[in-house]
Simulated assay, not measured.
Amino acid sequence: MSESDYPLSAFSAERLQGTNQPFADYAGKILLIVNTASKCGFTPQYTGLESLYQRFRDRGLLVLGFPCNQFGAQEPGDASEIASFCQTNYGVSFQMFAKVDVNGDNAHPLYRYLKKSAPGLLGSEAIKWNFTKFLLNRKGEVTKRYAPATTPDAIAEDIETLL
């Protein structure tokens, strides 16, 4: 697949470690992209996300976590605090990125693409809360959007069909 055929090639994001990650590197991978928070009722989903990553990573799945502080200020930490929290409490080994906005004028361009590609309930593009999930196929196309309450385990079958 050429870079021009991969819609995510236009995007990059800063990793928690401060390095820039071009999304062109993800061509040919299945992606599960999640806006995360450390102090949310859904935070225990980190366990399920890590489990999905461990189960399917050798077959081409990448889980990408994007901390966001737009919902109830539930991600107040800086990059090192977020990294430490995720590793210490949930053993997160999947890729985590620097804090982003997912809604509003400062929404990360990747999230603008995701929301436009897969609107939520009643056609609303807005992300309603932490742990909204987007599943993308190997071509970088959004195949499904999941509500925050959808557990990672409930997504496993959809991932399996894309692998």
Rank of each mutant, 00 (worst) to 15 (best):
Q45G: 04
S4M: 04
Q87D: 12
G123R: 12
D153F: 02
T151Q: 14
K115N: 03
Q45E: 10
E50R: 09
D25Y: 00
D105S: 15
A10R: 14
P109Q: 09
A73H: 14
G60V: 13
H108G: 03
G48K: 09
Y53N: 08
L61C: 05
T88D: 11
C40I: 10
K133F: 03
D101F: 12
Y90A: 07
Y146T: 04
A118W: 13
L114W: 13
I127D: 09
F71G: 12
P44I: 09
A79C: 05
G104V: 08
Y111P: 02
F71Q: 11
F71C: 12
T47G: 00
G41V: 14
Y53C: 05
N103K: 11
R15F: 00
N130E: 09
Q74S: 07
I127L: 04
G28P: 03
C86N: 10
G104F: 07
T47S: 14
F97C: 08
A154H: 05
G48I: 04
L136K: 09
L32R: 04
Y111M: 04
E157W: 00
F97I: 08
S2K: 15
A154G: 02
K99D: 07
Q87M: 09
L31T: 05
G48A: 10
A98Y: 00
A118G: 04
V102S: 05
R59L: 10
G120I: 07
A10H: 01
N137V: 04
E157A: 15
T151Y: 00
L52H: 08
A83W: 03
R57M: 07
G41A: 11
N35W: 06
F131T: 11
C86T: 14
S93N: 09
R59M: 06
S124D: 09
V102G: 05
A118D: 06
T88Y: 10
A37S: 14
F131M: 08
R55Q: 15
T19W: 00
E14Y: 01
R145F: 12
F23N: 01
T143K: 14
Y113A: 02
Y26W: 14
I82Q: 07
V63W: 13
C86Q: 12
P44V: 12
A24L: 13
N35C: 08
S124W: 11
G28H: 10
Q95N: 06
S12E: 15
I30L: 15
K144F: 00
P119Y: 05
L162R: 11
S12L: 01
L110S: 09
F131A: 05
G91W: 01
I33P: 02
F97R: 07
E75S: 10
R15S: 08
I33V: 14
K116D: 10
K128D: 04
F71I: 12
Y90P: 02
A156G: 02
V92P: 06
E3Y: 02
V102W: 04
Q87I: 03
C86M: 13
N69Y: 06
S84H: 14
A107F: 08
W129K: 10
G28W: 10
P22N: 13
V142W: 09
Y46N: 01
L8R: 03
K144Y: 01
A107N: 05
C40M: 06
G65I: 08
E75Q: 11
A156L: 05
G65M: 12
T19H: 11
